[in-house]
């Protein structure tokens, strides 16, 4: 009897020791990577960390001071740059819509058991992986070279990346649906489109909408960044303002971008709660 307990105790303490060792190793590795990484980063950087820290607030305070010096004429700037912001939002919206359509097709093609030709499933999955791995920036730079500097390369780049990223999320939603309605519809002799329309779409649409809104928000940020490398919109204005050291304009653009991102963040999380909340109510 006592030998069993001894045995158990020994096994337990062994397991405990092993776990502690792993934890210690993990923590050690973390500390090592942090310390080593920061040393290397400090080496590679043109400015030092400690010096930089003291200058960190210089630039923000400079542009705030310049904005104050501008006085009342600062406010009309917000209005003046509004078209650029709208262009960026349009870029994101068109990119999200086009990417969403492709994502929808890819997601249905990459879900087993929806009556799609089976060999298509792995092909669509790899296509999504490829599209998702492509950073928007690379594709945008490429397209800017071919199509010239305009918002369209950014839209294509955003749509391409969105198709992969959303497609993966959509297909995960598809995997998790209840197959019951599909079987019921098959029993009534429904066509493929009818089965998708009445058996699948009502189940997945709330989650799709939620992911689409989230992606739209992400794409606004991406479009602003792509503007910075030549795709127009608020990013292009920002680049100009920073390049010419126009502090007041820079502050106005920062403000506008920040406000837009926060507003859309809030709006989309409100809408997402409503959409998925409704769905929960309906199924209950």
């Amino acid at each position: 009897m006592s030998t069993t307990i001894d045995h158990l105790e020994k096994a337990f303490s062994d397991a405990e020791r092993k776990r502690r060792l792993y934890t210690a190793l993990f923590l050690g590795a973390t500390v090592f990577v942090m310390a080593g990484g920061f040393t290397i980063a400090e080496d590679m950087n043109s400015g030092g960390f400690i010096d930089g820290l003291s200058q960190f607030l210089d630039y923000p305070s400079d542009i705030v001071v310049e904005s104050f010096e501008e006085g009342w004429t600062w406010w009309p700037m917000l209005l003046e740059f509004a078209p650029a912001l709208i262009e960026t939002i349009n870029m994101a919206a068109v990119g999200t819509i086009l990417g969403g359509v492709f994502a929808l097709v890819l997601a249905f093609c990459s879900t087993r058991g929806l009556g799609v030709w089976p060999p298509l499933v792995p092909i669509c999955r790899r296509m999504m992986d490829g599209a998702r791995a492509f950073p928007e920036l690379i594709l945008a730079l490429f397209l800017i070279f071919i199509l010239g500097a305009s918002p369209v390369p950014a839209i294509i780049a955003v749509a391409f990346h969105t198709a992969g990223a959303l497609g993966k999320l959509f297909s995960e939603v598809n995997e998790n649906i209840d197959r019951g309605p599909l079987e019921g519809l098959t029993a009534t002799g429904a066509t493929w489109f009818q089965r998708m329309r009445f058996g699948v779409l009502p189940q997945v649409l709330p989650n799709y909408t939620s992911y689409l809104l989230l992606r739209f928000e992400i794409n606004i940020r991406a479009s602003a960044i792509l503007g910075f490398v030549g795709a127009g919109g608020i990013g292009a204005e920002l680049r100009k303002a920073i390049g010419w050291s126009q502090g007041a304009e820079t502050a106005a653009l920062f403000m506008l971008l920040f406000a837009a991102i926060v507003a859309i963040d809030q709006a989309s999380s409100y809408l997402r709660r409503r959409v998925t909340g409704d769905a929960a109510f309906q199924t209950a």
Partner: peptide
Amino acid sequence: LIWSLIFIRAFGLGPL
């Protein structure tokens, strides 16, 4: 984007 523009002024070019 904005953070990196602010930090470039402070830390200069590089991974930091």
